[in-house]
């Protein structure tokens, strides 16, 4: 039983890592008032380019760097369209997903070696290794926390830092002010456009990292649709976490765990169809949305960015 719990926790963390990075990124983006529905496409494109970069350079970190760059560029396109050009954020985000999905599939069939007919799928490249922390990794159950790759360890630091930055620093306050009430933020002397650009791009860097974690650690290698819809789970997670990095970590573990755990459950003879388990994140998200809206006072305290997906134009005041 203890061995089972340990392995479930280990798999959950491994599966949840990419979700945590991407969710953290989207939380920052949405807190600035920009809704980015392009996560799925961004994760796919960074997963394929990260893997290709690592494959040809031989260094896994080159892969992560390129993936972050790709995520950042796509986010910058979204920022340009939705902030500067004030395009509809829903349509802009979906176009990023459309483009990213198509481009990832295209590159996956063109970037591979000639010997493999230019396909990347099936190639073996460098991957992030698991680092067991001596002593700690031997503890039953909890030991799973210390038997992970470096990106998972970074999360343990990143989550509290991200929370602290958002809620306890001047910059975090400014960021939330822009997402909550851009007019007032502008009057206070905060540059709304610049803030939205910065945090949309930071969000993209983190989403890129999350995408690359899939192709360089969790399921090493490139395969078509490697994200399996994780980009949409991220959108759900942000709401489920109510725009708070701390809760996002917990949520990512629950959501990531659901997928990992179902195999164990089926193996142990439980007869809950996988589809229903996979539905849970989405149903829970709808319920959370209803609850926070219902309880307006609560929603204000939680800090759902009031100006989310609303373009800001100074001259329109």
């Amino acid at each position: 039983m203890i061995a089972l719990l340990t392995s479930i926790l280990a798999i959950t963390l491994r599966a949840g890592t990419s979700l945590v990075y991407a969710t953290m990124g989207e939380i920052y983006t949405e807190n600035s008032g920009v809704l980015n529905l392009g996560i799925e496409g961004m994760m796919l494109l960074s997963a394929v380019s990260g893997f290709a970069a690592a494959y040809y350079s031989g260094f896994v970190w080159v892969g992560f760097l390129i993936a972050m760059l790709v995520g950042g560029i796509l986010a910058a396109i979204h920022a340009f369209l939705s902030v500067t050009m004030r395009a509809n954020q829903v349509v802009s985000g979906l176009s990023i997903t459309l483009f990213g999905t198509g481009m990832a599939s295209f590159l996956g069939q063109r970037l591979g070696p000639e010997s493999n007919n230019y396909y990347l799928a099936g190639m073996v490249g460098p991957r992030l290794q698991t680092i067991s922390i001596p002593g700690l990794s031997q503890i039953p159950v909890i030991g799973a926390l210390f038997n992970q790759d470096i990106l998972t360890y970074i999360i343990y630091l990143l989550v509290p830092l991200a929370w602290f930055y958002l809620y306890k620093t001047r910059n975090g306050l400014n960021l939330r002010a822009v997402g909550e009430d851009p007019q007032t933020a502008d009057a206070m002397g905060i540059n709304v456009t610049r803030t939205r650009y910065i945090y949309t791009i930071i969000g993209g860097l983190l989403v890129g990292l999350g995408g690359a974690h899939l192709s360089l650690s969790y399921t090493p290698g490139w395969s078509e649709n490697i994200t399996g819809g994780r980009g949409w789970i991220v959108i759900a997670l942000v709401i489920f976490a109510m725009w708070n990095p701390g809760r996002a970590f917990l949520g990512a573990l629950i959501f990531g765990g659901i997928n990992a755990v179902q195999f164990r459950l089926q193996a142990s003879g439980t007869n809950i169809p996988a589809s229903f388990l996979n539905m849970m994140p989405y149903i829970m998200t709808v319920l959370v949305l209803v609850l926070i809206t219902w309880w307006e006072a609560l929603s204000k305290r939680i800090g759902a960015p009031a100006a989310l997906s609303t373009p800001y134009m100074r001259e329109d005041k």
Binding site: A87, S92, L98, F99, G100, G102, Q109
Partner: peptide, 22 residues
Amino acid sequence: LPSSVGLVLQGLILFPMLAGSL
């Protein structure tokens, strides 16, 4: 060629259109 050329083109039409809608 990968069939995703079509998807890529769909995406590429949208970016200038979104920018131009302003």
